[in-house]
Amino acid sequence: MELNFYALAVASFSTLIVGFIWYNPKVFGTIWMRESGMTEEKMKGANMLAIFSMAVFYAFLMSFIIQSLAIHQFGVYSLIGGDVAHAKPSYAAFMADYGSHFRTFKHGALHGFITGLFLALPIIGTNALFERRSWKYTLVSGGFWIVCFTLMGGIICAWV
């Protein structure tokens, strides 16, 4: 099973598109700015190229995990230690029978959603508790990652 770097890259860049919409002042941007303590003055002084580049890089790292959670065949591939040459005949038979099963946008989106809900949201929520942030901040930031992971899982899983 090979990594599809194109799918991972597109999924990573999708977080920017979601972010442009999600954090627009007409959507959740105003709430996020108020709850995070961000001001327009702080935003104007930032190196946006560096911020967006690192955001895509981090999303790219996340896409590797989303891929392994959304594509079931990666679990089977990991059982053989990653070297198909040493796999038993049962591996080839399994992949012949099920190699393309559950490889749809809908299925990947489901796994992405579950990952966002049960991994990203609790991480953000825990950080928000210790940083004394509001539940609005937690919902806006956690919701963003739930939507991003849903979209990322769909893109990665469907891109066969």
Results as ranks from 00 to 15, higher is better:
Ser12Asn: 07
Cys157Leu: 00
Leu8Pro: 08
Tyr23Asn: 05
Lys106Cys: 01
Cys157Ala: 09
Phe5Lys: 06
Ala70His: 03
Tyr58Met: 15
Ile31Asn: 02
Leu129Ala: 10
Ala87Ser: 11
Leu69Ile: 10
Tyr77Ala: 11
Ile124Asn: 14
Tyr98Thr: 10
Val56Thr: 12
Arg34Gln: 15
Met48Gln: 10
Ala120Glu: 08
Gly108Tyr: 00
Ser63Phe: 02
Tyr137Cys: 06
Tyr6Ser: 13
Gly19Leu: 02
Tyr91Ala: 05
Phe20Ser: 14
Leu139Val: 10
Phe149Val: 06
Lys44Ser: 14
Gly99Tyr: 00
Met43Cys: 06
Gly116Arg: 03
Leu3Gly: 07
Gln67Ala: 15
Asp97Tyr: 03
Phe13His: 06
Tyr98Trp: 08
His86Met: 13
Ala46Arg: 15
Glu35Trp: 04
Ile17His: 01
Glu131Asp: 15
Trp135Ile: 15
Ala128Lys: 01
Leu61Glu: 06
Leu121Asp: 12
Ala120Leu: 07
Ala128Ile: 06
Phe57Asn: 02
Met152Phe: 03
Phe105Lys: 00
Ile146Glu: 15
Ala158Ile: 00
Pro122Lys: 00
Tyr137Gln: 08
Ala158His: 06
Glu41Asn: 07
Asn127Pro: 12
Pro25Asn: 03
Lys42Arg: 09
Leu151Lys: 01
Gly154Ser: 01
Phe149Trp: 13
Ile65Met: 15
His111Gln: 10
Ser14Arg: 00
Asn127Cys: 10
Ile114Ala: 08
Ser90Tyr: 03
Leu8Glu: 05
Ser90Val: 10
Gly29Arg: 00
Phe94Tyr: 15
Asp97Val: 02
Tyr6Leu: 14
Leu139Gly: 11
Ser63Lys: 06
His107Trp: 12
Ala55Leu: 03
Phe144Thr: 04
Cys157Thr: 06
Thr126Val: 12
Tyr77Met: 11
Thr115Tyr: 12
Trp135Asp: 13
Leu49Met: 13
Leu49Arg: 06
Ser12Arg: 02
Ala11Val: 04
Ala59Gly: 08
Ala7Asp: 03
Leu151Ile: 15
Phe28Cys: 02
Asp97Arg: 09
Met95Gln: 12
Leu49Glu: 08
Ser14Phe: 01
Trp145Tyr: 13
Ser36Asn: 07
Gly112Ile: 00
Phe13Trp: 09
Leu151Arg: 01
Ala46Trp: 04
Arg133Asn: 07
Ala85Lys: 11
Glu41Pro: 09
Met54Gly: 14
Gly142Ala: 01
Phe57Trp: 05
Ala9Met: 10
Ala92Trp: 11
Glu131His: 11
Thr115Glu: 10
Trp32Val: 11
His107Val: 04
Ala128Arg: 02
Phe130Ser: 09
Met38Ser: 11
Met33Gly: 05
Thr115Asn: 07
Val147Phe: 11
Val160Glu: 14
Tyr91Trp: 05
Val18Ile: 15
Met1Arg: 07
Thr150Trp: 00
Phe144Met: 02
Phe60Asp: 07
